[in-house]
Design a binder for these strands. Structure first.
Lengths: 245, 245
DNA sequence: ATTATCTATAGATCTATAGATAATGC
DNA sequence: ATTATCTATAGATCTATAGATAATGC
């Protein structure tokens, strides 16, 4: 690791990540999610990486740029899953359940509680608006699926325009994984896949939909997603066999 | 308003609140909840009040002390409601539903989104630990009620120690009002009482409990709470008649 | 020559304190 | 005399830039 161009560091690396940029992102992810964006100085990030404060600026133009990269990486996989599951020819309740399961598992299994970045009050800064918009797009996928699932379930027994608070709940219940991690410590003791299943089931029940019949098709859909993204922290304990679909 | 001791301000008051302290708390509540604690300078608070930065320190010893008062005021009513409802001789599901309804209504109806103070990453500061602990106590009331409600409902059909993720959900669903307000703007268009009812119902359904039979006794319990605290932003549209209990 | 680090620092904050000032209250 | 404000400022940050230095790569 002493190889490579450039003046050597004074300290040997103390952060995971093959490049300096990745090490900076890892340190910033920890600090931003635990003490906040403004409360994290560039000096503290540099100290956590083991470089000098000014050296950060060889890799990122501003402190905010670091946050932008972290936000981008956090919202992208969930948004891709939402698009893929919405396009797939799945029963709507299965798509919603699978999206919740996948998203909640990701939130629970990431090294740092990156979902907390979306709760930072500093996100009202205009330059971060694109990422806030992406998160709202994801929220829209959830509520669209919820609206359609309700229509399918009760076939018009409810009003034609369902309560916006109600159809927001699957998204909010998935999001609760962020607050739980923030409250109970970064390392959650539950299995991410199991945790995600509990939240996905609850999201459907909150809408008044029985999750029992969707569990198995949803499991297959999530496994297909994981195979596609090959990020796959998702290894359910179940007997599910990939590729049967 | 030009009366009273002390040197006059350069600017006439621009904030609600009969005393300077209340005006400072109102301005700080807006800024802390929208841009965050560290990102809010004492100068910005003072500007929002219409006084000089140094004048804040006549009323509060430190910036953190302002946050402490806001946190105290936010958690106290919910905690009092939880204690009162737990002590009351109510069916457990009714107590849980009423607590959720009351708490969610408060979160939705406060002038600023004060619940967001509990999501500030800066709360990991040791001096704020007492308030974090109080919030966790409130969370404990919710989950205790949820555990007991599940036992009563299915009478041992489930395991003896229910899933901690599951019994945390009524609390998390109520808390979702904070994120919704942060996402959709401070002024919510729904009636607080109606909003709270939707979340209280969903909390029970998430546990697998039908909220229909508890709605009416819960309404009476919430009205009794409001009469007791006489803070009462709670005016349900229903035909419920206070005092019949 | 290029790259990644380093040292040094400018300029802009930000929190909190010291002490002056202008009102009311006794 | 007491109170609530004001002006002024010390001391500690904090972000970002300028330019030197020490490696590799050609």
């Amino acid at each position: 690791m002493t190889t490579g161009p450039g003046r050597p560091r004074l300290t040997s690396p103390r952060r995971p990540g093959s490049s300096a940029s990745e090490q900076i992102l890892d340190a910033a992810a920890e600090l931003f999610t635990t003490v906040g964006f403004t409360a994290t100085s560039t000096r503290k990030i540099a100290d956590a990486v083991g470089i000098r404060q000014a050296s950060l600026y060889h890799h990122f133009g501003t402190k905010e740029e670091i946050l932008e990269v972290l936000l981008e990486r956090t919202v992208s996989p969930a948004l891709a899953a939402a698009e893929s599951l919405t396009a797939a020819e799945l029963p709507v309740a299965v798509a919603l359940h699978a999206l919740s399961w996948y998203d909640a598992s990701q939130l629970a299994s990431s090294r740092w509680n990156l979902g907390a970045l979306y709760l930072l009050p500093e996100l009202s800064s205009p330059s971060l608006a694109p990422f806030v918009a992406q998160r709202q797009t994801l929220r829209g996928y959830y509520s669209d699926l919820a609206v359609r699932a309700l229509h399918e379930e009760v076939s018009g027994a409810d009003t034609d325009t369902p309560d916006p608070i109600l159809v927001d709940l699957p998204f909010r219940i998935v999001e609760s994984a962020i607050a739980t991690r923030a409250d109970d410590g970064n390392d959650i003791d539950a299995e991410p896949a199991e945790y995600g299943l509990t939240l996905a089931d609850a999201g459907l029940r909150a809408l008044g939909i029985d999750p029992t019949p969707v569990a198995e098709p949803s499991r297959r859909a999530v496994e297909a997603l994981d195979d596609a993204t090959s990020l796959a922290p998702f290894r359910p304990s179940g007997s599910g066999d990939t590729g049967t679909q």
